[in-house]
Computed example of a mutant assay.
Amino acid sequence: MSPVIELAAVARQYDLDGTPVLGPLTLTVAPGTALAVTGPSGSGKSTLLNLIAGLDRPSSGSITVAGERLDRLGEAALARYRRDRIGMVFQFFHLLDDLTVQDNVLLPAQLTGRPAAAARARAAELLELLGIARHRHAYPGRLSGGERQRVAVARALINRPALLLADEPTGALDSAAGADVRDLLVDLHRAGQTVVLVTHDAGLADACADRRIHLVDGQVATDSGDPATSAAAVTR
């Protein structure tokens, strides 16, 4: 089975005369993997996520996600890729306050032109699965932080993406709501969803991921999927 993510000698450099903020980095992620990306601030975590999301372009190297060669796509094609192939969950939810929960979840499906009845059935399925069906006609401002993050996850999953990207998904939540989102990510992974999770929270990474890479100065310092780097970390 082909990897969901393939990065080959990818580097991102903003200053032409400076050190790359990321890479060169080679990485493959198999379908069904939950990968946690950790590291200190400035280590390249967000840059890596933005490259995989097609929100940024590599200075060199190639990026293939779900069969799409991102570094060769124009802006319109990248927008379609983000719409059709991936789901994204952010720290601060980015829900539309003037839309109901159901309408927030339906929005990506409407943008892809999915039949309305099928989209509504998928939204109902997700809201039930995530335990927020009773809030489908409520507005986001009336929900708790944990409930809003569940809405954001439902919105990210409505088009059945090959890949779910989560950027500090518990960073704006209290401990109880954070635990709810952690359990949700665990359940999604168990159901076979491929996930890339960027987090400063080692506990979240340990609970949700079956593979973990730790970035330092734009390089992979350790990779639990690579015995060589894992052994090197133990001997330090």
Rank of each mutant, 00 (worst) to 15 (best):
Q102H: 08
L185I: 03
A8K: 13
G42V: 01
R120H: 14
T112H: 14
A124R: 11
H189C: 08
R236E: 13
R182Q: 07
R190N: 07
D210H: 03
V196N: 08
P58V: 05
D71A: 05
A8L: 06
R134F: 00
A177P: 00
Q149W: 05
A209Q: 03
P115C: 09
L188E: 05
E75V: 05
R136T: 13
Q102N: 08
V220E: 12
D17A: 14
A166T: 04
G54D: 01
H94N: 12
A202W: 04
L16K: 09
A119L: 10
V181E: 09
L73R: 06
E125M: 08
V153M: 14
D180Q: 15
A152Q: 08
A202N: 10
Q91Y: 06
Q110I: 11
G23L: 09
R211W: 02
R155C: 12
R212N: 14
P40L: 14
I132E: 11
G203F: 06
H94A: 08
L96C: 00
V105H: 07
D56P: 03
R114A: 15
V10P: 01
Q219I: 05
V89N: 06
A177H: 14
P20G: 09
V4H: 04
Q91T: 02
A123I: 15
L49C: 09
I86L: 08
L99E: 12
A156Y: 04
